[in-house]
Design a protein around this nucleic acid. Sequence first.
DNA 1: AGCACGATTAACAAAAAATTAATATTAGAA
DNA 2: TTCTAATATTAATTTTTTGTTAATCGTGCT
Lengths: 227, 227
Amino acid sequence: MEATNEKILIVDDEKDILEFLRYNFEKEGYTVFTAQNGTDGKDIAFKNKPDLIVLDIMMPGMDGVELCKELRESPDFTNTFIIFLTARGEDYSQIAGFEVGADDYITKPVRPRVLMARVKALLKRKTKIKAEQNVIEVNNLIIDLNRREIKFDGQSVHLPKIEFDILVLLSSYPGKIFTREEIYARIWGNSVFVSDRTLDVHIRKLREKIGNDYIKTIKGVGYGFNE
Amino acid sequence: MEATNEKILIVDDEKDILEFLRYNFEKEGYTVFTAQNGTDGKDIAFKNKPDLIVLDIMMPGMDGVELCKELRESPDFTNTFIIFLTARGEDYSQIAGFEVGADDYITKPVRPRVLMARVKALLKRKTKIKAEQNVIEVNNLIIDLNRREIKFDGQSVHLPKIEFDILVLLSSYPGKIFTREEIYARIWGNSVFVSDRTLDVHIRKLREKIGNDYIKTIKGVGYGFNE
DNA sequence: AGCACGATTAACAAAAAATTAATATTAGAA
DNA sequence: TTCTAATATTAATTTTTTGTTAATCGTGCT
C-alpha cells in the first residue's frame, strides 16, 4: 500500500485503545494524532485538520458527543468524517442522531479490521466530494453529476455524453488505472465494438477541454485520473 | 420539530444500515418501514404507500432498479419520491433516471447527514407544492399548479396536459438533467409506449410558448430546465 | 354528424456527436 | 540509441439524435 498520508485523529480516554489503534492505522500508512480527552482533541483537531476523526462517546470532561457538536459548528469540519466508538448495548441514541453529525459508529470492543474497513470506506477518495450535491471537485475542475456538466477554471464547459461518462468513470477512482478494455466495457458495454482508436480520440477531446494534467496515459495499459 | 408523520420506506440488504437509518428517521418524526430485499420492499410499499423510498441499487434478488420500475408502473407511485443509494463510478445513468424515474441518488458510503438533508429537501418540496401557493416562478414565467396554467410575460397561456406535466417535472428540479427515458417514465408511465419523436414535439410546443431559454437539450441524454 | 382540441406519428431536415482512417509522434524495450 | 508498438492527432465520414412541419387519429362536445 502506498502512503496515503491521510490524517486521522483518535480521541479516547483509554490509553491502551489509543495505542492499539495508533499502531494499526500507522501500519496502514495513515498519519495518526491522538488525544485522551475532548478538550485536547478539539485543540489537535483545529491544529491539524484531520481527514477523519474517531471519537469515543464516553470520556471524562468533554465527551465525544459534545466535541463532535462543537467541531461541526466550525466550517472547517463540516466535511470531516466522524466515526463514533460506542459500547455495545449502550444507548447510542445520542450519537446516532443526525443533529450531532456522526458519519458512522462502531461498537466496542473495537475490532481493528472492522474499524479499518469503515475508515477506508469513508476515505476512499482523496478527492473532495461534495456529497450534498453529487459533485466531484479537483483543483480547478468541477464535475457536476446532476447537471452533467463541468466547470474548468470557472468556465462551464459542455461535454458530449461519452466524454462526460469517461471523465466520471476515471475521476471517480483517482489514481486507479483503467485498462482500455475496462473502459470500453464500462462505457460502451460488452456488446458494442468500436475500433481501436476511438477511445484515444475521446481522451484527446477531453484533454482539449480540461488540459493534459488530469488524464494520464499508461502505455500498454490504459488511462487514469490524477489528483 | 412537529410530528410530520411522513412515511419512509428503506430497502437495503444490510441490516446495520437499516437499523441505523431507522433510528434516525424515527427520531426525526418519520414513520419508518424497512425491508431487506426488493420483494418485501414492494409488498410493504403497496401496503403502506410511503411518501418516500430509499432504495439500495445492489440487492440480492430483485434489485433497486427493478423494484423502482415496478413501482413506477403503478399510478400509486408516480408521485412518490425515490432516492437511490449507489456506488460512485457505477453507471449512474441507469439510475439517475434512465427509464427508471429516480428523484435523487446519493453515492455510498452513505453519510447519514447527507441522506437526511436530501430527504428533507425532497419532502419539503412536496409539502411546499401541496401546501403553499402552488406556484413555481422563474423570471418571466409563472407556473400555477392549481390552475394548471402558466403566465409568460404576464400573459396567461393555456398548456395541454402533457406539455404542462413535462414543464412541471423539469422546472421542479432546475438544473437536473432528465433523460428521455425518465421523462417518458414519469409522464407516460412505464407501461405506455409512444413513438420516439413524441417528446420532441411536446418540447417544441412548449418552447413555442415559453421561448427557447428555459428548456435546454442535452444531446444523447435528455432535457433540463434552466434557472 | 361535424367541429375543436390535443396527442401521436411520419417524413424529412438539421445538428451534433461518434467513429474511422490516415498519418504523426512518442514512450519504452532491446 | 534505435526501433517498434502504442498512442496522439487531425480531418473526413458516418451515424445518431433532435428539430420541425404537417398529416392523422381519437375523443368529447354541441
